[in-house]
């Protein structure tokens, strides 16, 4: 167990390191002149040179990298060229919002997908299964940027059940925070439900063919008990792997809904920064989101060891 996790952890560190190099190079190698952004395109070469010196952009690249990385470890990701807001501050306000969106949507997705798969996998290709499977197939074709406008049109503009835009911090008013988060979360949930349901269903169907299920039946255990305590856990490998892959789609989803609902999360800030060529903000957000993504993958690798003891001892 410890050995397996240690190996994964080393991978995590290596990938994080590569991410940091790429995030650094993004600003420094790709075409685009930060001085032009700050000073405007028509400033004098002298002023540009002074600024380059101030920003430390005239030092050797590896030197700049170590300086930058040291600063990053001290929690200093630089500040916006445009409004001098610190990138760390942008991250501190935006990150919890993305996290909340993802957690709410995943809780809903698992709460719908798991019971549904447990019901339909017992009678594959029967009416209930066909309806659910076709339904989730449709949901696969509803990415956030397609379903979010529909949800807004129906539930915000049409029925006035939920606000169409805006975000209330949880600390300010938990009830309106959740109320405002429901539509954005639902918009990014549809795809997850479909993916999780299909993966779990197909694994469950093959698990239910196993001898140990017949064995469990021959012990007199109830179907419910067999489904939850014998069939479910060995059927969650693809589900977990799928959840890992799906996190990428979820990040894209949060960006979409933040843009549409004008929620001040990381995606909102990232898009604004890209449009304004605010390089350090783009760099800081990319770095943090990419590392968060890698950490989640690590956590999922850990879950594999919980689900199946053979992963680490076999």
């Amino acid at each position: 167990m410890a050995k397996y996790l240690l190996r994964r952890f080393i991978q995590l560190v290596v990938v994080s390191f590569i991410i940091s190099v790429l995030a650094f190079l993004l600003v420094h190698l790709l075409p685009g002149d930060p001085t032009a952004v700050i000073l405007g395109p028509n400033d004098t070469p002298q002023n540009k040179a002074i600024l380059l010196h101030q920003l430390g952009l005239n030092k050797p690249l590896w030197n700049q990298y170590t300086i930058w990385l040291t600063a990053v470890f001290h929690g200093n990701l630089g500040q916006s060229y445009l409004n001098r807001e610190s990138v760390t501050h942008i991250l501190a306000t935006g990150f919890p919002i993305d996290l909340e969106l993802i957690i709410i949507s995943q809780v809903i997705a698992f709460a719908v997908a798991i019971p549904l798969a447990l019901v339909t996998s017992r009678r594959p290709n029967r009416p209930v299964d066909n309806v659910a499977t076709t339904g989730t197939f449709g949901m696969l074709a509803l990415p956030p940027f397609v379903i979010a406008p529909i949800l807004v049109a129906v539930f915000a503009v049409g029925l006035h059940w939920f606000p169409a835009t805006g975000y209330v911090p949880f600390s300010q008013n938990p009830a309106s925070n959740i109320h405002g988060m429901i539509l954005p979360s639902l918009a990014i949930t549809a795809g997850s439900i479909a993916v999780y349901y299909r993966l779990l269903r197909s694994d469950l169907i093959s698990t239910l063919q196993e001898d140990f299920i017949t064995m469990a039946r021959s012990k007199g255990l109830s179907s419910r008990f067999i489904m939850w305590r014998h069939a479910f856990r060995p059927s969650t490998f693809s589900l977990l792997a799928g959840a890992g892959v799906n996190i990428g789609a979820l990040i894209a989803g949060t960006f979409i809904v933040e843009y549409l609902f004008a929620i001040n999360g990381l995606g909102y800030s990232l898009v604004a920064a890209v449009n304004q060529r605010d390089y350090l903000v783009v760099q800081g957000i990319s770095l943090v989101v990419a590392i968060a993504y890698v950490v989640i993958q690590f956590f999922i690798d850990f879950l594999f060891t919980v689900v199946d003891p053979r992963v680490t001892r076999g």
Binding site: F212, T214, M215, R233, D308, R310
Partner: peptide
């Protein structure tokens, strides 16, 4: 009713102990 009989009064030993025991329990 069958479930009250299975495992209690009438039980079964399977051919392949590799596949008939739940691998994750």
């Amino acid at each position: 009713e069958l479930r009250q009989v299975w495992g209690a009064e009438l039980s079964m030993i399977f051919q392949d102990p590799m596949t008939a025991l739940n691998p994750v329990k």
